[in-house]
Write a protein that binds this DNA or RNA. Structure first.
Lengths: 179, 179
DNA sequence: TCTTGACATGTCTGTATGGACAGGTTGAGG
DNA sequence: CCTCAACCTGTCCATACAGACATGTCAAGA
């Protein structure tokens, strides 16, 4: 039911339509945390409405329906945020690839790790200026822009992977060189 | 089809039964990368056999069937490892919670971040000695134990999250204190 | 006026998946 | 000899999900 909580969390920022929420999943949340297409989002919003966690607070042009969180919805979000299961759902293709690097021939592993390192470096160069621009606009005392923490998470994530790939390359050198 | 590639990657380490593979998912790979239960693994192994990517190389007691990678299977694994889709599958409940921290009241957010930081610190203290023990046993020139790179990844991951949570707490202090 | 792209909501089908259901074997220790 | 835990393989069902299919509106610019 994580999709439901993702939607509750996004709606906690303010009312949004199914379309808006679908767009949100194109951004950082869909890239790093949880994917969802509109074909899942619309039915889920319907079920959440039935469950009393959201309401249609406004309709707009083109049949637009704007959803807002109810008290029940906010309570459920809070409950979920504080209730960590022992085994959280995880299914991450990128991390899986990292786990399986050692299944490749040493030469292939090295090539792949070099690719990962380069890719991370490129992402970092793209993300860092965005974060710095946000910080420059930010005034003392204002709430942080939504996604600032998430963006920082993504950045640190890439830095960690970059460091890992570099470290792994060093560790593999001995094996490959001895070939 | 990532489950298939996870299985191919695990089998690249050597033959294993469905039961062995199920156990493997209880470890790091299932915790950080990809979850799978035996009810998915057995049917998938059957399909992979049909596709010629694995073969039953040996039967043992209790109906045990040991699967081994074929050349086709190894080729498919390699192909997949080098073929990165623009948008990789990701569905990670833990990361989702991090994205949604800003949806909470500042006080709740602070409590949660403190919990995350403490949790990460505990995991780091558990993982680091394991890695150090493996390194102490490791001799120059030997191949790294399977999972050493993955373990290092997990460790660096926790360190990154810990750093992020600490940083986030600092950034939120202004908001909370001004309340 | 026309066309195009963005806005907007939905359904349907095949596959993925988790959790329950189901059943049988073997070895070690009491 | 017995029992129990670990070993071992499977199926079934309800739900989750991705991607295709389907439909229609509105605003801006040519």
């Amino acid at each position: 039911m994580s999709l439901r909580h993702a939607l509750l969390g996004l709606l906690a920022q303010g009312p949004a339509s199914g379309y808006d929420l679908t767009r949100a999943f194109d951004g950082g949340i869909g890239r790093y945390a949880w994917q969802a297409g509109h074909s899942r989002i619309y039915p889920e919003l319907a079920k959440m409405t039935e469950a009393g966690q959201v309401v249609v607070d406004e309709t707009g042009p083109r049949g637009r329906k704007s959803y807002a969180l109810t008290e029940d919805g906010r309570a459920e979000l809070r409950r979920w945020m504080f209730h960590w299961p022992e085994q959280a759902t995880v299914r991450d293709e990128t991390v899986l690839r990292m786990f399986l690097v050692q299944s490749l021939e040493p030469d292939d592993a090295r090539t792949l790790l070099e690719g990962i390192a380069a890719h991370c470096a490129a992402e970092i160069e793209e993300l860092r200026p965005l974060m710095e621009a946000e910080d420059a606009e930010h005034r003392e005392g204002d709430p942080l822009p939504f996604g600032r923490l998430a963006g920082e998470y993504g950045l640190r994530q890439y830095e960690a992977v970059h460091g890992w790939a570099t470290w792994s390359l060093e560790r593999l050198v001995g094996v490959g060189a001895a070939r």
